[in-house]
Design a protein around this nucleic acid. Structure first.
Length: 356
DNA sequence: CATCCGTGGGC
DNA sequence: TGCCCAAGGAT
């Protein structure tokens, strides 16, 4: 695409601002250097999918310490990687992360493809991540469009078509302002701008380097862009979960690879729904907690009723699982819902002990 | 194009 | 407090 006139002015002003104000982030090459490890760029981009910079920080540090290279990650145990990802959410990313690392080692001699097309063929790498890695790690011109870029571009050009229908127009406009040189810096500069100045609410237009070129700034309400389709209501679901204890251990199961919390360790639980059928996984003297654990997922909210029991030596619940030492439950890699269920059981036990 | 898939922080 | 939102991808 040609870059000229107003379009090139935007890139120039943004890059000049970025040269002074770029955020220092753990996965970014230090200022003034061109070093960029494709493994670290890819790892950070996958972690940052639908996830905030603040949440990713400690996970990125732990992953790069445990697995400094793609070869080492490819050789890791599945359960270790899933446990290290616990709490970060969208667990299909962790499964795809491992598949991708192994594909890079097996099919690409341990080196990430350096083109969008090549990257796009890897598990967990979609249009955004392929463009971001191609631009940031390999200096390729690529049109990088994430939610920040969507917002910035929709405002720059006052695109009032509601999302997601506006995606094609936004992408075309992003293409027009993407420079041939420094495409990686440009992409990161757009994302920095969206994260710190051109924010969803109360954008700081007064300090924005692009306000002279921004069609939304010229309107009464720049924050009205982008326009979004109304969202649908979240249904409520109910479920039952079981804390089964035996000799200092608790019974944990592994959830199926596909679906919600796929591949993660968990407490055994019933189906979740409007009025789910439920039968405890073992015949025992059950004590029910007074309050369920409430948790909100992307497309529904859940109230998980909890029940706990002790088993005698030698007794086993139905189905497949493992006895996990309770004093090391923090190492089980439970997703947040079940980590909170564990906390609720602990509080319930403490309350009863205090009464005795 | 719509749906499914987590979680924590900000206001 | 409830709602919005985030460096999206797979199906």
């Amino acid at each position: 695409m040609r870059v000229e006139g107003r379009e090139s002015k935007i890139a120039g002003a943004l890059l000049a601002h970025y040269d002074v104000h770029a955020r220092r982030l753990p996965w970014r090459a230090p200022p003034g250097t061109n070093a960029s490890d494709p493994y670290r760029v890819w790892l950070s981009e996958v972690m940052l999918q639908q996830t905030t910079v603040a949440a990713v920080g400690p996970y990125f540090a732990r992953f790069t310490t445990s697995w400094p290279t793609v070869e080492e990650l490819a050789a890791a145990q599945d359960a270790d990687v899933m446990a290290a990802w616990a709490g970060l959410g969208y667990y299909a990313r962790a499964r795809n992360l491992l598949s991708c690392a192994r594909a890079v080692v097996r099919d690409h001699d341990g080196r990430f493809p350096d083109t969008e097309e090549g990257l796009r063929g890897l598990p967990g790498v979609g249009a955004y991540t392929a463009a971001a890695v191609a631009a940031i790690a390999f200096g390729r011109r690529a049109v990088v469009v994430d939610a920040n870029v969507e917002r910035v571009v929709a405002r720059l050009f006052a695109i009032d078509t509601p999302l997601p229908a506006a995606r094609s127009a936004i992408r075309a406009a992003a293409d027009r302002i993407t420079p041939d040189a420094r495409a990686g810096d440009f992409a990161q500069a757009m994302m920095d701008l969206g994260a710190t100045i051109c924010t969803p609410r109360n954008p700081a237009c007064g300090i924005c380097p692009l306000r002279q070129d921004c069609a939304a700034f010229a309107t009464a309400d720049p924050a009205a862009f982008p326009v979004k389709a109304p969202k649908k209501v979240k249904p409520h679901r109910l479920g039952h979960g079981w804390w089964i204890e035996r000799d200092g251990h608790v019974w944990l199961v592994r959830r199926p690879d596909k679906g919600l919390l796929g591949g993660m360790r968990a407490l055994p639980s019933s189906d979740w729904g409007a009025a789910p059928e439920w039968t405890p996984p073992v015949d025992a003297a059950w004590t029910s907690l007074a309050e369920p654990v409430s948790h909100v997922f992307t497309h529904f909210s859940l109230a998980l009723a909890l029940h706990r029991a002790h088993l005698d030596a030698g007794m086993e619940p139905n189905g497949t699982g493992e006895w996990w030492p309770i004093d090391r439950i923090g190492e089980a890699g439970l997703p947040t819902l079940f980590a909170r269920a564990v906390e609720a059981v602990r509080r319930d036990k403490d309350a009863r002990d205090a009464k005795d």
